[in-house]
Design a protein around this nucleic acid. Structure first.
Lengths: 346, 346
DNA sequence: ACACATGCTCAAATCGTTTTGCTACACCCA
DNA sequence: TGGGTGTAGCAAAACGATTTGAGCATGTGT
């Protein structure tokens, strides 16, 4: 089956790879011409073009992208820098990005920073050295120097999640504030009396807290500082926080709790089940993100949908629009809605 | 803060990028020498080396990897071709791979095939064109011509999951058969009478079925064909299959069911809850994979752990060992154990 | 003094493309 | 005949590194 390996057509083919020169030789033209029929940048006579295509086919020629990149300064590859691909939010985001840029002929290079600033910097450097054409970055830090650096060097950067303060960096973020507002409002509409919140780390979770606050304000409630407890985004953190909320005298217990993400909400449900409180009758629970697990836990979680895939798609579009020269202005910002998803827990 | 941009030291610096020639000029040596101090391939006088390093530092030189790749025919990048990064198994596997190869200085390039044979072929071609140094492939098809092609061209390929029949392709797989055996045995040890299995598609799930069969044989049971129902790996498929199992006359219902993966087991639990059968008292349920959701569902799922991360790590090691020339022989096979994880559902 | 290492450096070729001029030929019109 | 106007194709110079053979000092043993 394998093509008999005994080309004596042209000189330089020590390894398996066919070069443009060999194609040119077989077609009886110059490499220039082959390049032109491939790129279409200049017109080539119909007959010549045929001969070239024929040669390409019989030789099984595939252009060497590395050489091409060197010459054109284009790698046709974008990089995505995220804390952890294992986290569903980021894997879905990455998928959205990959699907989008793939359509435009770009590949996707992935880096996991584990939230470490050093790793982030290291990877951004690596990415630039590799000549990636664009970067989407879920940054650890507000002022990622690596990113600014990249943007400074003319490599488009789009930041997902938090904003990055640079005049030419695009941002796409979910509307956490409004989403949290909606979820909180849903809680309040149940006619509950004491509503608590399990927060995320304030650095990244500020908007979810803000939405909660605004909903409380709008309905004329005051937030009881004792009912605002910190969490760490994890299931176990949610569990601990809920236990803390339940620790006080029964009178002061919440009858509704908004958790800044689903994982913590699931932890909260663990705690409530353990104590024997019925959800949502005795305590209503809501989360944020709408992860898969939200429909697996019982009762199924009321939550706000976090548009991970769309975030990736939009990041991809923003990047592409700069890469193909359609846009060249200052940083744009896209915020995506987080619609309320009502299920059984609230 | 930014370095004042007004180099008139040397000629070719139209864009921001510093080249090895500029470094050489500033250090008063030839590019050759700079290259040698960087690679250490030939000795350079101590003083010269100092000057070069100094020049590198003041210019902020970073070697252009594309140019380097062209010359050395090494991209320092491996590709991973999987059905879907969104699937936890593959994202965890990818993470294991990325962590492993990163240590050896390799980056990771990700391709999602969605299980489409055409996309797989297209991506493998793309990968070769990009000059990836190695490929790990969770192949759709037993005889992926793209992979064989790659292997034929001297690019190391390691296949995860199913085996690929090629003398030089390494394989790393989980021991599904033994894992399934253990899970089934656990079910049998409960003293159940009628045990069913919800299968995966036979193409990829054969070993899990085999393990089930062997466990049944070993305990002197006969498998009732009516209790072997096909599934499709999805939660909904598991639900449907379970409903089918419950459809018959009560006498013929199973009192234990082994689901070929956790997702289907969760679907089965959905069905059982709906019908009001208590798990595990009336029907014991077990799954396979040990996904996160296995501890979220209630009762928590008894299952076999599928070592996704380790699979990635091992795939990475096999690749690296070939890339650095430590190994150059025929295809190796690594099979990883899938330990039983006992929880509440069986 | 000769041969022979040894240490250090450089010029030039190479990797496989793309991109510029530039040439050559043909045709048409004045 | 001369000048324009296209069409097609090529040679050669990039792109930014690595690698190789050779050169030029020194030192060293005889």
């Amino acid at each position: 089956m394998a093509s008999t390996d005994g080309r004596q057509l042209s000189g330089p083919a020590p390894d398996g790879r066919v070069t443009i020169t060999q194609v040119a030789a077989l077609a009886g033209v110059s490499p220039t011409t082959v390049s032109h029929v491939l790129s279409g940048k200049r017109i080539v006579a119909h007959s010549t073009r045929g001969a070239v295509h024929e040669a390409i086919r019989t030789l099984g020629y595939r252009p060497n992208n590395v050489a091409r990149s060197l010459r054109t300064r284009r790698s046709q590859m974008v990089a995505v820098v995220i804390p952890d691909i294992t986290n569903t939010f980021y894997s879905v985001l990455t998928r959205g990005l990959a699907d989008t840029v793939d359509e435009a002929g770009y590949g996707t290079y992935v880096c996991n920073t584990d939230g470490s600033f050093d790793r982030e910097a290291k990877f951004l450097e690596d990415i630039l050295d590799r000549g990636a054409d664009g970067v989407v970055l879920a940054t650890v830090d507000e002022a990622s120097e690596g990113a600014l650096n990249a943007a400074g060097m003319g490599v488009p950067v789009v930041c997902v999640g938090g904003a990055l303060d640079h005049p030419r960096i695009d941002v796409v973020a979910a509307d956490d504030e409004v989403g949290s507002y909606a979820v909180t409002k849903r809680l309040l509409d149940r006619g509950v009396r004491r509503v608590a919140m399990i927060e995320g780390p304030t650095a990244t979770g500020a908007n979810r807290i803000a939405g909660f606050q605004r909903a409380m304000d709008d309905s004329g409630r005051e937030v009881d500082p004792a009912l605002m407890v910190p969490g760490d985004w994890t299931r176990h953190g949610g569990y601990t926080a809920m236990r803390a909320l339940l620790a006080g005298p029964t009178r002061r217990r919440p009858d509704a709790v908004f958790c800044a993400n689903d994982l913590m909400a699931i932890g909260a449900l663990d705690a409530l089940r353990e104590v024997g409180l019925e959800v949502p009758r005795e305590v209503a629970v809501a989360g944020f993100d709408d992860v898969d697990a939200a429909t697996i836990v019982s009762p199924a979680l009321t939550t706000a949908f976090n548009p991970a895939y769309d975030t990736g798609v939009n990041a991809g579009r923003l990047l592409i629009s700069r890469l193909n020269g359609q846009y060249d202005g200052g940083g744009r910002t896209i915020v995506l809605p987080c619609p309320l998803v009502v299920r059984d827990s609230a």
